[in-house]
Simulated scan of single mutants.
Amino acid sequence: MSQFSHINQSGEANMVDVSVKAETAREARAEAYVDMSAQTLQLILSGSHHKGDVFATARIAGIQAAKKTWDLIPLCHPLLLSKVEVHIEAIESESCVRIESVCKLSGKTGVEMEALTAASVAALTIYDMCKAVQKDMVIRTTRLLEKSGGKSGHFKVQE
């Protein structure tokens, strides 16, 4: 079994030293879902939501969140992201919204947390913008889908 990388020999939390690691191209994809009523989803899709374009706002929030991950997650390194994408799609048959984020860089540490943060904050933004019309929405299944680069290599979730 692997050891936790953020715990030192004394059992204390610490930031991992990446100074000796090689720079490699790194990429991560993550997703999150927001379950809501069909009426709330139609309000978003019709463009008649009183707060404006919910998906555009959530997309921008997700991108901004990826760039600020190091400020939110205590032991994350500040990274020079070269790309952040947030894709949002309505799944009308399931009355939900699926968010997928992609983060890329060339660096010494991975971008999994940035991708997860982007998807999470985009989902939270959708909740925030729609809570006036529906408070019982559910944010679910936030997870890493795929990552590449670095010493641990490629990971892809098994569907």
Rank of each mutant, 00 (worst) to 15 (best):
Q3H: 14
S5R: 10
S5E: 09
S5L: 14
H6Y: 12
S10I: 09
S10E: 15
G11S: 10
G11W: 02
E12P: 05
E12H: 14
E12T: 05
N14Q: 15
M15N: 13
M15E: 12
V16Y: 02
S19I: 06
V20L: 11
V20N: 12
K21G: 06
K21D: 08
A25Q: 13
R26Q: 08
A28H: 00
A30N: 02
A30E: 01
A32P: 01
M36T: 00
S37C: 03
A38P: 01
A38N: 10
Q39A: 14
L41E: 02
L41Q: 02
Q42V: 07
I44G: 06
I44R: 06
I44V: 15
S46G: 13
S46F: 10
G47K: 09
G47D: 13
S48P: 09
S48N: 15
H50Q: 13
H50S: 13
K51I: 07
G52Q: 15
G52S: 14
T57P: 08
R59A: 07
I60L: 14
A65S: 15
K67H: 10
T69H: 02
T69N: 01
T69V: 04
W70P: 04
L72G: 04
P74R: 03
P74L: 03
L75T: 15
C76G: 07
C76E: 04
P78N: 11
S82R: 15
K83W: 12
K83V: 12
E89S: 08
E89C: 07
A90R: 13
E92H: 13
S95M: 08
S95Y: 01
S95V: 06
V97D: 01
V97K: 01
I99Q: 00
E100V: 14
S101L: 02
K104D: 11
L105W: 09
L105R: 05
K108G: 05
G110I: 01
M113I: 12
T117P: 06
S120V: 04
A123E: 01
T125V: 01
Y127C: 11
Y127A: 11
Y127R: 07
D128V: 04
C130I: 05
K135D: 02
K135M: 08
D136G: 05
D136K: 00
V138I: 10
I139F: 04
R140G: 04
T141Q: 08
T141S: 09
T142S: 07
L144R: 04
L144D: 06
L145R: 04
L145M: 12
E146Q: 11
S148F: 05
S148N: 13
S148E: 09
G149L: 10
G150A: 14
H154V: 11
H154P: 05
F155L: 06
K156R: 14
Q158T: 12
